[in-house]
Amino acid sequence: NDSFTVRCDIVVFHGYCAADAAAFISVPPCDLRQNLGRLLETKMGADVVFDVGSETIAAHRCVLAACSPVFAAELFGPMKEGNAAGSSVRVEDMDAEVFKALLRFAYTGSLPDMRKEEEDVTCQHLLVAADRYGMERLKLICEEKLCKYIDVGRAASILMLAERHHCEGLKKACFNFLALPANLRATVA
């Protein structure tokens, strides 16, 4: 009769939502820090050795060059101290533990665990190392930590350190502490 019939079967699922599919998959957070830290610890593929004090410390040129313009120039640019893989670079005027902490920061972006009673001295040495290698984030972290240690006994030495290494925030914190007449008198005394 010039007509046709269409039959449709419809199934309705109650409570089903496409967003629930994500509940079956759990993506872990990025573990690049741990992977790079492990690379530093195992020395796998290390292609440069640093002589620091009486210790030799292996590292990876590309990682260091990515984190520091000074390392980049020293290891790949006109300042480079050797062309061969595995060549040795002498680091003068730095404690091996401070250099290891600098490398740990370059690889993982975090500071090593420090004993509370040594944190201020360690941060002072790390600040000097960070300034030497052009690692601005590490330098700022050390500045921030050193602000907690400004007191009558340390204000002058921290201010000198801040002036010598162009740490404007740390200098302001020292001047803020010394702005109180009692602190200034006690520090001068």
Rank of each mutant, 00 (worst) to 15 (best):
V121H: 09
K116N: 08
F76E: 14
N183P: 06
R185W: 03
R33F: 09
S26I: 10
G82P: 07
C67L: 05
G37Q: 06
G82S: 12
A130E: 03
R132E: 04
L40H: 03
L127C: 00
V11M: 08
V11E: 11
H125G: 03
P78S: 15
A18K: 15
V52F: 04
I150D: 02
C62I: 14
A106Y: 07
H165A: 04
A22C: 13
V70K: 08
L103S: 04
D9N: 10
A18T: 13
R132S: 03
L40A: 04
V98C: 07
C147F: 00
P181Q: 13
L36D: 06
V63W: 05
R38Q: 14
S110Q: 11
I158N: 02
V98Q: 01
C67Q: 15
A96I: 01
L32K: 05
D9I: 11
A85Q: 13
C147V: 01
F50A: 03
A21F: 11
G37R: 03
E118R: 11
D95K: 09
K145I: 07
E143S: 14
K172N: 12
P69D: 15
I10Y: 00
E97V: 10
A65D: 07
A101V: 06
A84T: 07
G82N: 12
A182G: 08
V152P: 01
A155K: 05
H125D: 10
R104K: 15
F50D: 02
R185L: 12
A21E: 12
D9E: 14
A22M: 14
V89C: 05
L178P: 06
R164I: 01
V121S: 10
K139Q: 11
L64V: 10
F4P: 03
V152R: 05
P69F: 03
V48D: 04
E74G: 01
A59T: 09
V12E: 05
A18E: 14
A182Y: 11
T108Q: 05
C123E: 01
K172R: 12
D47P: 06
C62F: 12
E97Q: 14
A65W: 05
G169F: 06
K80A: 10
A179T: 04
A72S: 13
D120V: 01
E119H: 00
R115F: 02
Y133S: 05
L140P: 00
A66S: 15
D20L: 09
G77P: 08
E81Q: 14
R185H: 11
K43H: 09
L75Q: 07
K145E: 03
D120W: 00
E143K: 03
A23D: 12
F13Y: 13
K80Q: 12
K80M: 13
C142R: 00
L159Q: 01
L126M: 06
A85E: 13
G169L: 09
D120C: 10
N183T: 10
L111E: 07
S88Q: 13
E55T: 04
I150P: 00
T5F: 08
L75N: 06
H14T: 13
V89H: 02
C17Y: 08
D131E: 11
M44R: 13
T42M: 02
D151L: 09
V98N: 00
I141G: 01
R185D: 12
